[in-house]
Structures are given as structure tokens and as C-alpha cells.
Design a protein around this nucleic acid. Structure first.
Lengths: 338, 338
DNA sequence: CTGAAAGCGCTTACAG
DNA sequence: CTGAAAGCGCTTACAG
């Protein structure tokens, strides 16, 4: 096991000091072009790579950011990471990943890991279990900039990036109305998750703005799953005045609706309209293809990094909130009623 | 900006030396229980977290591994990362992520980043562009253990984890035969990718083992896309003696086949059989649902980490290869012919 | 059981 | 333009 070459090796080789080598390699303005050249050549010849660990210890900057996600198994988070990681690389930052697996304890553990690793900043999406935020406040107290995305908390003075769930739901509901559907049901998700609550609000507002009275009986409380979509559909169709369209809180639920309607031989679209939310990978490939709302996952990651980057470089700590537009993806399931 | 507390602060507070604090915190056997207790209390009181950077510089171990993937946007890699990251956390390792974005240059850049960060080991899946491997050999020369997964190279003496593509394809083809299909076509992918070549071989072997002569005319060369599935289907159906079943190299291709057959009003299954490969997230939700081969993504990540872990802890360098079983997922698209 | 001392590989304020 | 020196926060061989 050969020892790796250091700036001291290069210094010895060239009969100069390590300080000069260090400055030459970091392109310090006061070093002569000639010295830079010989140092760079020697570095190459001796197969030198800078030890970031030593550099970090001395400079106090690691150029590493920590990214906390519920799980890398969900394509949504993979996609956000894609956005974060590409911009991070481009700006000279490495990305440390930690999964909470939707567990509060793991999330706390992950933040501890980030603090121990002396990351320069943290980007995080909260676990479902999290309702105590001291671990984040702890990181904040240590002057580590934090940005939340998607699953955020507004009360901590922590900047965040989200999409406008209210507007997305409003658009979806109004779109169904414009396509000629008149009684529009909603299959919702757990209301303690803010995004789902916002979507419910957008649904209600769109109805009222279009002179359709809001009927609470048309809202089914699901748990974001195919099964919830099926059960919700069965329930809504059993009502005395059943809906002729459904807006679902997300696409797995919409998929369940689609399956149930197929079993009941109800035609989508035309006879019945369906609008989902989240634009999952399967949504383009159901039949009929799902009309839904895209959540801008890659831009969400990019905006999160950009925000964090600003905070890391400038030391700004004011609370910024970036709200991305929801993007309607018009496919087949909400084509006009006939 | 308060300075973070160090072992020196604790030492001063307790009138002992930093060495003792360090030993107490790392639970050194020769330190008295009493000292350990007071140190731990002081550490808690002063809100101490160990500086891993300093520890790494001194000990030469970072307890960080680097994971190189083509892109986090593909759920396959997200899922593998899930497996890697969970085991890594459990074993006290942090995970640094780098995306090659299928580019050779970025891949080289990523390995440089890993070397600079002094990672203790590397797990990687090759970019499509990569045919020169000096960057990996360079890392290996620096005694950084490496494990390849899925997109591997067998000629470098680098351990790897893959699934048995040959066996998976063999199973798929034979399954179609057992279900009563007789002329089985194959829509393949680029042959320079080893996995795709293996799947072709498995297909051929299964035919021959079942006394069905291999007809090269029934193999369509695609590029793993929905469009390739459609085009391949059109081509195969135009043949004088068209197939009554297709085995596709992966599920997007299978989805294309499904769409084309639907357009031509050919019934799947029964009239026509279809077997995919890779078990994408959408595959359970097409109609009919796709029968396919699961690639064991999470176990692949876990096995990769376990292998790397062994190498990091024991210094073993012999070339190990782990071949995971392909898991048949029997759904609807390959139900018996009638 | 604990201390004194050296050193991991850098960076940077100070000096010339 | 370059050098000498100190120090980032730990760990560990050596000594007692």
C-alpha cells in the first residue's frame, strides 16, 4: 500500500515549500506563471489529487451538502435528487444522501450524520412521522443553511420549495367542469399532510367559482392507494346522485378509480371524467392515459439547490419560499363529456 | 457565529486532556467508567458533535462510500440506492452520490471527486458511453475497493453484482412455450450491452431445449423503447409465418408491443402471448398486466454494499461475482393460449 | 487509568 | 513572488 502523494512530496521534488505548492495548485494570483506550470506538471507526474478532507478541516468548508429524503425507492425523490445532484456537481459540491424511511428516529439520526460530516448545507423533505423539529433547529443553530422541499414546514423560518397544490387542484377541477362534467367528486388523502389539504381547498374553490355548490358528500377520505381509489369510487357511485367525474388527490388513487370504473363498465372519458395529480411514471401508460398534474420534480431539485447555494455563499438567512407552477398534463381521461 | 465545541473545550471544562476526552467518547476500554460518564455528560451539556472531518484526516478512514449511477431519474437506480443506503447507514457509512448522466466525461469527473473525498470504497454502474476504464483502475491502484453492479465489466478484476439475464430470458421463453405458444418472437436491444446479449442467448437456448428451431427472422433489433416495441411488432406480424407470442428485452418495449397489438385488435393473452423483462413500475398497471422478470433491485443494492463492506473491512481483493436470481412475476399477459 | 506530544495534509496571515 | 510557522480537531504510540 503506497502512501498517496501530498503537497509535501511535490514541494520536496521541486525544492520549494508546501505553501507555494498549495498556492500554485489553487491558482493564487501572486504565484508566477512559471512556478504554477512546474508545480502542475509535478502534480500530474506524481499522480497527485488534493485531499479534500485536509482542505476541509483547515478551511472550514467541506463543499458537501446533505440531502434527506423519505426514500430513494419513490421515483419522485429520485427525480428531485437528479435535479439537485446535477447542479451541485456543476457548482463543485458533492451530495451526501440519507433516507429517513419515513421514520422520525432515522431522520434525527441522519441530521446528526450531516452535522458530524460538517456539511455546508442541508436539503430535506420531511418524513411522514415528523412533528418535532428540534433536529432541524439544532442544525440551524449551528449555522448550517437548510432548505425544505415538497414536504415542508412553514413555521420554522426555513426556506422551502413547493408546487402550488391549491392552483393545481383548482385547475383540475375547473378543467373537468369546462369539459362538460357537472357533478365532480374528490377522493382525498390524509388531511394532516398539507399538500393534500391544499388540493381539497383548490377543489372546493373551483366548484364555487363556477357556481357549482360544494357537496361534502362528494368528498371521499382515502389514503393515497389504488385500493382507496377503488373503494372511493364504489362509495361515490352508490350515492343517490352520483358524480360524473372524479378528481383524485394523486395518481395511484386515480389508477384505482380507473380499475373500478372498468369493472363497472363505465366508459372513461365521455361517460365519466377523471383527473389525477402527480404524474407518476405509469400515468402515461394506462388506458385511457391519465390526465394529471406534473409536479416539476427536476426543477424542484434545481430550485432547492439554487436556494441553498445562495444561502451558503452569501450567508442570507431570510426565509424565502419558492412556489413552482403545477403543470397540467392533458391526456385522455378528462376529454369532453358527450 | 459561535464556534462549535471541540474535545478541547470539554477537556478544559473538566480539567483533563483532550486525549482522555477522545478516548472516553470512543469508549476506550482503559478509561474508567467514572471518567466516561463525566465526559459524556459534559459533551451533552456543551452540545458536542464529533468532527468527522478531523477524525477522518487523522485515522485515514472517512466512513464514506461513493456511489456512481447513470441517473437518479431511473427508478431502477433509485431502488438500488435504497438498498445500498440503508445497509450503509446501519453499518456507520455515509453515501456520496454522483450521476454520470450516461457520459464518460462525467463518470471520470465523479471518480476524481470520490478520490478527492477519500471515500473508503466505491459502488458503480457504468455509463452507456464508457469503454475506457482507466479511471476505475486508477481508483483501484489507490487501494480504493470497488464493486460494480448491473452494468459491469468482467475484465478488470473488479467484483460485481448482477442478475442472471440468461436464466431470466430462458425462463420467460420456456414459460411462453409451456403456455401453448409456438412461434415466439424476440424484440431485442443493443447487443453491445451484455445483459441484452445474454437475454438473446437465453431465448435461443430455451427454444432449442424445447425442440423449437431458432428462426433468426423472429428476432427484431430494437432500442429499448415503446416505439421499438411497436415497430418490432408491426414487422414481426408482417412476416409470412408470424409469431403468436413475443418475449421482449425489457418492459418499455413490451408496452409498445401491447399498444400495437391493441391497435391491431389482437387479444392478449389467449390469442397472443407477451413476456417482458425488468418489472418497471408501470408493468403491474397496464391492461393486461405485464408478465415479466423482476431484477431484484433492492437486494442488488444490499449485496453490493455487503460485498464492498467485506472488502473495506478485510482488505480482500479477490474478484467475487454475485449472480442474483431473476424473479418471474406472473401476471396476465402470458396466460395460456386457447 | 491518564497525560504529553506528534502528526494527518492542507491553508493562510504575516514577513520579507 | 515565496517562505516559515501556526493551526484546523482529532487519534494514538509511548510513557508513567
Amino acid at each position: 500500500m503506497k502512501r498517496r502523494t501530498t503537497i509535501n512530496d511535490i514541494a520536496k521534488e521541486l525544492n520549494i515549500t508546501a505553501a507555494t505548492v498549495s498556492r500554485a495548485l489553487s491558482n493564487h494570483p501572486e504565484i508566477s506563471a512559471k512556478t504554477k506550470k512546474t508545480v502542475q506538471e509535478a502534480a500530474k507526474r506524481l499522480d497527485y489529487t488534493q485531499n479534500q478532507i485536509a482542505s476541509s478541516l483547515r478551511s472550514g468548508k467541506t463543499h458537501v451538502i446533505g440531502v434527506m429524503i423519505p426514500t430513494a425507492e419513490h421515483p419522485f425523490f429520485g427525480s428531485v435528487i437528479h435535479g439537485i445532484s446535477n447542479l451541485a456537481s456543476k457548482n463543485g459540491y458533492a451530495v451526501l444522501i440519507y433516507q429517513s424511511n419515513e421514520s422520525y428516529d432515522y431522520e434525527v439520526q441522519g441530521i446528526k450524520t450531516f452535522i458530524g460530516a460538517r456539511v455546508d448545507g442541508i436539503i430535506a423533505s420531511l418524513s411522514k412521522e415528523t412533528s418535532d423539529y428540534t433536529h432541524f433547529l439544532d442544525a440551524k443553530k449551528r449555522n448550517i443553511p437548510i432548505v425544505f422541499f415538497d414536504r415542508v414546514n412553514d413555521d420554522l423560518g426555513i426556506p422551502c420549495v413547493v408546487i402550488d397544490d391549491y392552483q393545481g387542484a383548482y385547475f383540475a377541477t375547473e378543467h373537468l367542469i369546462k369539459q362538460g362534467y357537472r357533478r365532480i367528486g374528490h377522493i382525498s388523502g390524509p388531511q394532516y399532510i398539507k399538500a393534500f389539504n391544499e388540493r381539497l381547498k383548490g377543489y372546493v374553490s373551483a366548484l364555487q367559482a363556477n357556481q357549482i355548490p360544494f357537496d361534502p358528500a362528494l368528498v371521499y377520505q382515502g389514503n393515497i392507494s389504488i385500493e382507496a381509489g377503488k373503494a372511493g369510487t364504489r362509495h361515490l357511485l352508490s350515492l343517490e346522485s352520483a358524480p360524473d367525474a372524479i378528481f383524485t388527490v394523486e395518481d395511484f388513487t386515480a389508477l384505482g378509480v380507473l380499475k373500478e370504473l372498468k369493472e363497472q363498465s363505465i366508459t372513461v372519458p365521455g361517460q365519466f371524467g377523471l383527473f389525477g395529480f402527480s404524474n407518476e411514471l405509469f400515468s402515461a401508460h394506462t388506458s385511457p392515459a391519465l390526465t394529471t398534474i406534473d409536479q416539476q420534480t427536476v426543477p424542484m431539485g434545481e430550485e432547492s439547490f439554487t436556494l441553498l447555494h445562495t444561502m451558503m455563499e452569501t450567508g442570507r438567512t431570510d426565509t424565502m419560499k419558492i412556489i413552482l407552477d403545477p403543470i397540467p398534463i392533458i391526456r385522455e381521461s378528462a376529454l369532453p363529456k358527450h
